[in-house]
Design a protein around this nucleic acid. Structure first.
Lengths: 154, 154
DNA sequence: TTATTGTGGACCATTATAGTACTGTTTAAA
DNA sequence: TTTAAACAGTACTATAATGGTCCACAATAA
């Protein structure tokens, strides 16, 4: 369904929480309790975000995670690719290998065009955009009770 | 990986074949042998495309499938949603139900914006666009050997 | 009436995903 | 120097989604 994974969804929730007080160090435990996502799962997501250089980690006591850049420089595209690998709708868009062989297939070239459009769309939205309210109604609703993300998936 | 399913990929291959001689009726068997996709799988895809009103089917002997509209009026978005359901990146974009409850979550409103952008991108590309060569190099390569799609997935 | 062709549903094997656990490494602080 | 806090890496399991196949049924042209 052209859907992104739960982990990616979690990542956006986690990052938007961290973006609220940029620069501050957050431990995995803290993030888990605030977001309502289980600790091991939070850990997994954070690790992936560190590998993708979206976050910076500090080991040891008083350690934790910080944003690697300011929210306005973290793109949605980078978050998605951190969690799900390269953004590419079709198999052949990733491995040029397979595509070369099936070069007779005219369509495949055009998929890359579509990929480009989508990638641009995701590249143009940043974490800073994600945390600011879009619609008037959302502003109103923001004052309501905050429900843990995990409860959505049940 | 934000990837669309194999079946969707097959659908584009099948549709692009059918678009070459619009109006003509093609039996599932014929399509299977031309594309190199197994007959049962082709059938499955065709059935879904009929349900989504992308194709029209004729039963009985000499029956088969035809495009329901001209290629320039069949959008990539309609093909994708035929195979994979509604195009929506996040869970809450589909079921307003769950989203209402978690209205405190500020991010979710912004996902719908991204969804919109992507949907528009996919809506703007038609089957007619898919079958015409995009890049100069593709035109050259088009003369090479044609390899069945199925072989890409192995 | 018969052969041909699509329809609908059910089914199973394979793979991907989500979630968890465990062991190791680093470092602040006592 | 020791200890506890916190991240790192890897491996594992259960569940769900996907891909692929098959069969009994319905429709239609010859």
């Amino acid at each position: 369904m052209l859907r992104l994974s739960k982990l990616t969804d979690y990542a956006t929730v986690i990052l938007s929480f961290m973006a609220k007080d940029d620069l501050q160090v957050h431990a995995a435990m803290e993030i888990a309790s605030v977001t309502g996502i289980a600790l091991p799962t939070v850990s997994k997501v954070l690790k992936l975000l560190v590998n993708a250089k979206v976050l910076i980690s500090t080991r040891g006591a008083k350690g934790g995670y910080t944003l690697a850049k300011e929210p306005s420089k973290i793109t949605v595209a980078s978050v998605i690719s951190a969690l799900e690998g390269p953004i590419a709708l079709t198999e052949c868009s990733i491995s040029q290998q397979g595509c070369e062989q099936a070069s007779g297939c005219g369509i495949r070239g055009n998929w890359s065009l579509i990929n480009q459009v989508i990638h641009n769309a995701l590249e143009s939205v940043t974490l800073a955009d994600m945390i600011k309210p879009t619609h008037a109604q959302d502003v109103v609703r923001r004052q309501e009770v905050l429900i843990p993300v995990a409860s959505l998936y049940r």
